[in-house]
Structures are given as structure tokens and as C-alpha cells.
Simulated assay, not measured.
Amino acid sequence: MSAPNNSYDPVEVAALRPEEVARMRDHALEAIANARNLAQLKEVRLAHTGDRSPLALANREIGALPPSARADAGKRVGAARTEVAEALQQRQEELEAERDARVLVEESVDVTLPWGRRPQGARHPITTITERITDVFVAMGFEVAEGPEVEAEWYNFDALNIRPDHPSRTMQDSFYIAGGSEQASGMVLRTHTSPGQIRSLLQRELPVYVVVPGKTFRSDELDATHTPVFHQVEGLVVDEGITMAHLRGAIDAFVTEMFGADLRTRFRPSYFPFTEPSAEVDMQCFVCRGASVGDPTAACRTCSSEGWIEIGGCGVVNPRVLVACGVDTDRYSGWAFGLGVERTLMFAHGVEDMHDIVEGDVRFTQAFGMEI
């Protein structure tokens, strides 16, 4: 039986040659010295101390050597890696000190200067844009109607032709108010402003032309485009001889007033229990006006280069809703629409994250000022 190969020369492994280890170490030290900011230093750290760095790969080769050769190779690679780590730490401290000194200069504040003890206030843009939307329809002859935020299930679901087995009535989608002795109270935080339609039809003389702004609640997680508490503006018309053509005219007038003239609108067939027929309303992008469609050099962030923006839902009031409110469907007909206020705000002003709207940072609201 042959004896172990104790005379194996480690320099035969290219990555473990003294000159190669020194070269990898010097290359790492040079990259560290040339890093001009912390971001560059982070890239250098990953490149020269990460699992796929040259010295880390060389260190893996040591295990393939015979026992008598491992000690020297390990010391050589270990010393190089220690030197690189120390250089990284030293450069990290230098760059952090430079950053802190620069911040002190660039963000310095003269605390001796006089300042206004009563900073200028700002209205929340949700309030402002809700009033703007409402004013558009008031100018058309509508009245403003309001309703409670805690609604009976009959107003929120049953009268609107939302059946008991509809998914929106589950606890995963709606916030229910608990009753005594763990019994259901029959009350829910309204999931839309549509109960305002029912209350208006029950409380007002026909014909009815109302717009219903308000806060609504749904069991959604707060993220960039969703929030459990949001705002809607609902519109309702019930009169003799009302058709979908009247609805189209009102939507066109709203879009012109809010976003500018000569913007086209379109209706896409949809389904809502309280309207039949129903449609989703799109308007032409008010930024690119459709010019970005199919043109990669003219990408539009507002409409994602689709040329259209969805603004809400609408349709002819379902006769079952009118019957629930005691309206003679042989004589009267109507239409309704619903607009999301947060969606309108995000489109009109380029707001990209719902957190900015709901977290109460005064720097966000101050950008909108005191517009009324």
C-alpha cells in the first residue's frame, strides 16, 4: 500500500499560490480605496468578501489539500481575508464620517432666525377634491345628500338587490357591528355610499337628483393602492323618461370640468346588483391623451400607456331597487354612478402611494394648500 502524499506542493493549486493570493488581496484593497461613497463600498464588500468572491473561492480549495499542506495555505488566505476585512472597516468609518460632516453642512439650520409660530395650515386634499366633485354636480342641479356611516344591513345590502349569499356580505369583506350577547346587531359599517340612494328615495319627493359624498369601509389591507377606509361620491337620478344617454352626458360633463376639455369617455359592460345594465366608466388619459399607446418612447406613468383611465362604475337603476323604495317603475326610471375620491386624487395629482393620503403627514397636505 502506498504512503500518503505528504509531499504535495500547495502551489500547484493556482488559486493558492502566494502571488495569486497577494494579487486578489491587492485588487480588493484597491477597490476599497477607490470607493467614493457607502453605496459603492457595499458593492465592493459583496464582490470581495461575499461567498463568490475570489478569496472565498480560494479558501474552499484548502480542503482539497493534504493535511501537511493545509496549514500554510490557510494562514496565507486567512491573512489576506483579514487584511481586506480591516480595510473595509476602516473605509466604512471614513465614509460615514464624511457623510455625517456633509449632512451637518447641507442641513444646517440657523436656530437664531425668527420663525412663524403659527405655520400656515392646509386642508386635506380628500376634502378639497370631494367638494370639487360635488360642486360639479350641484352646478347641474343636483342636491347633496348624506347618510350615517353605521348602516342597517337592509339599506346597505337588501334594498340594493345584494342577495344574502353575495360574497360582499361576508365578514371577510365587511365590518359588522356586534350586538348584545354575541348576537348580530344587523348593523354594518357602510361598504359604499349607495345606501344614500335608498334613503334619498324614501325621504324625498320624486323626481330625485342627488349626489352623496362620504366615507366607506371595507376589510382591505392598507397598501399602495388599497385602504380599509376610503371615500366615494355617489350620484342618483330618478325621474320620468330617464335613459342611459342622460347618464353619458352627465359623466362627460363631469370629466370635462374635472380634467379638461375634449377628453373622450367610454363605457365597458360590467355587473352591479343595483344597476341593470351596468358599465365601468373609462376616460381618455388626460396626460398623454392616448398618444403613448404602442409607443415605447412615450411611456405614460398615469395610464401605464394604455390610453384610458378607469374612474368608476355606473348604470341604469335596477327596477328591484326602485320597487324596494316604493317607486312606480312603470312611470319612473333612473341611473346611478359611483366614483372613488382617492382614485381621482391619485390620477389628478400623481399620488403613487395610498400611505401618503392616510398617514397624516402635514408635508403631504401642505403641498395642496388651502384651496377651497
Rank of each mutant, 00 (worst) to 15 (best):
M1N: 00
P4R: 05
N6G: 11
Y8K: 00
V11Q: 08
A14C: 02
A14M: 10
V21E: 11
R23T: 00
M24A: 12
E30W: 03
R36Q: 13
R36Y: 03
L38F: 05
A39Q: 09
A47N: 11
H48K: 10
D51I: 10
R52L: 13
A58V: 10
R60T: 15
E61W: 06
E61T: 00
G63D: 11
P66G: 00
P67C: 02
S68Q: 15
R70C: 08
A71H: 15
A73E: 09
A73P: 07
G74T: 11
V77I: 10
E86M: 14
A87Y: 00
Q90W: 04
Q90G: 02
Q92M: 14
A97S: 13
R99G: 09
E107Q: 11
S108Q: 12
P119A: 11
G121L: 06
I126A: 11
T128Y: 07
I129F: 15
T130S: 14
F137G: 03
V138N: 12
M140A: 08
E146D: 14
P148E: 04
V150C: 01
V150T: 06
E151L: 07
A152F: 05
N156D: 04
L160K: 08
P164K: 01
P167M: 05
S168H: 12
R169F: 08
T170I: 06
T170Y: 12
T170V: 08
S174F: 13
F175T: 02
I177S: 06
E182W: 01
S185I: 03
S185V: 09
V188T: 00
T191E: 03
T193V: 09
T193W: 04
L206Q: 00
V212W: 00
F217D: 09
R218D: 08
D220E: 15
E221M: 13
T227Q: 05
T227E: 11
V229D: 06
G235Y: 12
V237T: 07
G241Q: 10
A245M: 08
G249K: 12
A250N: 07
I251E: 12
D252M: 13
A253F: 05
V255S: 00
T256K: 00
E257M: 05
A261S: 13
D262R: 03
T265D: 15
Y271I: 02
F272Q: 05
P277V: 02
A279E: 07
F286S: 11
C288T: 11
G290P: 10
D295P: 07
C300F: 00
R301S: 15
E306V: 15
W308I: 09
E310Y: 12
E310S: 02
C314E: 07
L322T: 01
A324R: 04
R331G: 04
F337T: 02
G338E: 08
L339G: 06
V341A: 13
T344V: 15
T344M: 15
F347K: 13
E352F: 08
I357S: 05
R363F: 11
F364K: 03
T365D: 12
Q366M: 14
A367C: 14
E371F: 14
E371G: 12
